[in-house]
Design a protein around this nucleic acid. Sequence first.
DNA 1: CGTCAACTTGACACCATGTCAAATTATCGG
DNA 2: CCGATAATTTGACATGGTGTCAAGTTGACG
Lengths: 198, 198
Amino acid sequence: MSRKTEQTRVRILQATLDQLASGSPEKTRVSDIAKAAGISRQALYLHFPTRAELLIAATKYLDAQVDIDASLAESRAAATGEDRLSAFIRAWAGHIPVIHPVGRALMAMQDSDPEARAAWADRMAAVRHGCAAAVAALARDGRLRADLTEERATDLLWTLLSVRVWEHLTRDCGWSQAAYLAEITRASRAALLAPAAS
Amino acid sequence: MSRKTEQTRVRILQATLDQLASGSPEKTRVSDIAKAAGISRQALYLHFPTRAELLIAATKYLDAQVDIDASLAESRAAATGEDRLSAFIRAWAGHIPVIHPVGRALMAMQDSDPEARAAWADRMAAVRHGCAAAVAALARDGRLRADLTEERATDLLWTLLSVRVWEHLTRDCGWSQAAYLAEITRASRAALLAPAAS
DNA sequence: CGTCAACTTGACACCATGTCAAATTATCGG
DNA sequence: CCGATAATTTGACATGGTGTCAAGTTGACG
């Protein structure tokens, strides 16, 4: 009963991630996912009430698999604010490609589905929280640009690290992930750090 | 004959811009626009074959009204590269709010309509061209950061000035237009200019 | 072997876009 | 001012995806 239900649920979630990753996420239909999971479209609706909730569940499922907190451990352990900033950027930048397919699908639904909007906003708020921590560490070291409040610096970093910026640089500009990481790290330092950096 | 057709056409385009500006652009339906223009939905299709082409035509109509080239004149006339960069940013930043409603509608169609995608890409390519000119002026003055190629610098500036970044800062972060302009100018200078700036 | 849950099949409502045909109303040239 | 014709209206319909509903089928487990 519950055993089988859970199996099917996981199979659906995995199929969702697979389908989103291969092909345009925003054009992936519920029927495509059901087919990939080997069940009927209606059966999928027995597990997830709407497309939006399926996507949200898939996001959480992915979270559970990748364990972003572990990647952020290095950032939190950094001795200096500058190290913390770099480590945070490195960790988050490495995660963007992983969450991008489902993120793109979620972003595409933002205008039509309030739940999807809230779910995505929530995840991004978590990223902002990480940005704020890095900025606070910088401020503690006295390395933050004097004319920036912590809040404004956080907004700036959050924007620089947004998925849209990653998309623009890697997709529209054709940058490699390595180039993205190097340049966005540099740009973030340039934007936030007081002059006379290392 | 052609007189009336033209009148109606303009009325539709104006109604389109009005509707997009008031209310979520991506949720604006063809029937909403037709109603605002005072004609039937089917009559609208007599003038514009698809929603995408209507939006594209509205973009061109808006262009014709605002004359972006005039705003860029100051930028082109700048004596130094740094002045040119600042003037370009100021001009473009001032235009983003104007084109944003229709731009947002166009961006929302990118995944479903290749024509809309191409039209928006085209406009953004024009912005990139402006970025490239500013970067070239900077390079000519020897003010470009040594470790950046002109191409990469252009990509960076183009990204910083993207509509998505403007949306993020003004909508998600709640920044005023003035704050956006000031901070994005600063960030662009920090990202592109060689140290020891004015 | 019977029961209950999971699943299937097939039909349908909804909503926005886009198409079509027939009827009606403006508009313009003569 | 009238007749041709262009512009518009009304109403019906196709398409494609989401979400719902009902009735029938399969399969596991006590």
